[in-house]
């Protein structure tokens, strides 16, 4: 079930960032709390649409449109038992 970020690993994020497709961001979701997902696209309203890395991730539609102010950081490094990986 694990995508590019293994379970119980550490994710380092930067609070200063630009929005790029396929980059991974941490954001506060009204239902799911603080979550980490990959940016799929930015719509015409400037809202962000995210997707998961694997089959059982919640869908973009379930996540819904995310406002830029909900995003708290861009993930750039993953530290897991498997090693250190740039995201």
């Amino acid at each position: 079930m694990e995508g590019c970020i293994p379970n119980k690993s550490f994710v380092l994020s930067c609070p200063f960032f630009s929005f790029n497709k396929k980059s991974i961001y941490l954001f506060r979701h009204n239902t799911y709390g603080l979550i980490v997902k990959k940016l799929k696209y930015v719509d015409l309203n400037g809202d962000l649409w995210f997707e998961g890395e694997n089959f059982s991730s919640i869908s973009s539609i379930k996540i819904g449109a995310i406002k830029k102010k909900q995003v708290i950081g861009k993930a750039f490094l993953n530290i897991s038992k498997l090693g250190v990986k740039w995201l």
């Binding site: 970020i5 799911y32 603080l34 980490v36 998961g52 694997n54 919640i58």
Partner: peptide, 14 residues
């Protein structure tokens, strides 16, 4: 105690 972030799957892992 770092903040915990979830990748949120539809079913719990494993």
């Amino acid at each position: 105690n770092f903040q915990t972030v979830s990748a949120h799957c539809d079913i719990p892992c494993k």
